[in-house]
Each structure stands twice: as C-alpha cells, then as structure tokens.
Amino acid sequence: MIEISGLSVEYESDSTSEKVISGLNLSLNKGDSLGIIGPNGCGKTTLLHTIAGLHENYSGLLRVDTTEEKIALILQDIGLLPWKTIWKNATLGLDLGLQGNRDGVEDLLYELDLYSYRNSFPSQLSGGQKRKLGLARALAVDPEILLMDEPFVSLDEFTRESLQEKVLKLWQDRNLTMTLVTHDIEEVAFLGRNIAVLSQAPASVKTCIENKNMGTSGFRRSEEFYRVVKRTRKELP
C-alpha cells in the first residue's frame, strides 16, 4: 500500500528554492494500479522519484508498505547502461545485491522477446525493445511495487498498445502494485484503475477518477473506456 498525505517537495539550489509538490494526498491499495497525469513540468516525475526513495528532501507523510528493495522504478529515458549487455542490464538489480531469481529473468526475456538479444548491447535494440528491457530490469527483482515514468513515450501507436497489453498482463499475473506517470490520456485510462489528475506546478491532486472496469477483456474498445478518456481530458488543467 502507498499512502501519501500533505506531501511537499522543494528543490534547493545555492540561492533559490522551488516548490515542486505542495500538500499532495494520494493512496493506493496493494495490488491496485494508479495512473498519474498532469501538465508538463507539474512535478509528476518528482512525485514518482520521491515514492521510489530518490528524494529524501520532502515534508509530509509518505508511507510505503514494503522495503525499498521491493520497489522498482522504470526511468523516463530507461537509463540502460550502454556498456552492459542486455542480460547484464536485465540482471543489474541482482548484481547489485537485490533478491531475485536469474531463471525468472530468463523467462521474462523470453516473454518479452528479448532472449535472443541477451548478448547484444542496448544501442543495437529498437526503441520498443529498449522499453521492454527497462520493464524486464524492473521486474527481475520481483518487486511488489512497480513505478513507471512515461514508460512508452516516443513509441509508435502499435508498439505502444502492444506494450501496454504486456504490462497489463504482468500486473495481473504478478499481483503488482503499479503506479504510472504519463502524458497519454488513453494510456492512463487503459492502465490506471485509479487516475489522479494533477494541478499545475507545484503539484497537488486536482481530481481522482475511479476506473473500475479497467483490465477487463475488450476494455479498450468499450464505451466505458471512452467515457474515462473524455472525463480525464475534461479534468486536465
């Protein structure tokens, strides 16, 4: 479970400080999914990084019901290490001492059609394959909470939808608690059972939309899906 109450984050440089998040409240149950959407530069990434434990400089309540090792974060530009092979990138967390199963990583690479590339380097992969590798690296450590920052940005529509389906399946199969930050309204409606629309910076939650039919078969083509898309668009500042 993730519980956030009155969260504020400030960036401080030598002479100035800038408030990026102000009094933000959110909560997410175990095994549930949350899609976060909001205008450019409103503090979505900062929120995700704060949940992941990358920002220690915050005030307010942030309670995450698991250990830091069980939180996996997929960065906006993935952060693949160019000098490591696909296999070494996927097992990075395990090499750094996190718990996980190497056989499980092999299965994951098969599932994401990356196994035949295991000895290649990231620069030899396509954009979609890089995104899949980011997903494999995050899931390799058997996380309980999966945080994704614009995971399918700059991909073509077809690849994006196919990756969204894969993520949905992995979320359902692994009982993950998932939080996704995106600019894509359809993506947030497809993957978020709860949708938090953020205000302009400094970020706070403007509206929370419940999307309880998300994940059901044929949801993407349903009336309900378009209703959620329409409502989300209306709520965006």
């Binding site: 434990g53 990358l54 960065l75 952060g79 490591k84 990075l92 750094l96």
Partner: peptide, 25 residues
C-alpha cells in the same frame, strides 16, 4: 548521464557500486 546513476541507485546501488557499474565503464 544522471539517468545511469539513478538506474543504479534505484536498484539499490551504493556509492562504490555506482563507481563500479557507471563511473569507471
């Protein structure tokens, strides 16, 4: 790139591991 460092830090890497897995290579 700060993203490489974040990748190691968010996977639980400490300072020495950042040197080993990012800075040196």
């Amino acid at each position: 790139s700060p993203q490489w460092i974040k990748a190691v830090r968010s996977s639980g890497g400490n300072k020495l591991q950042i040197y080993r897995h990012v800075v040196i290579p």
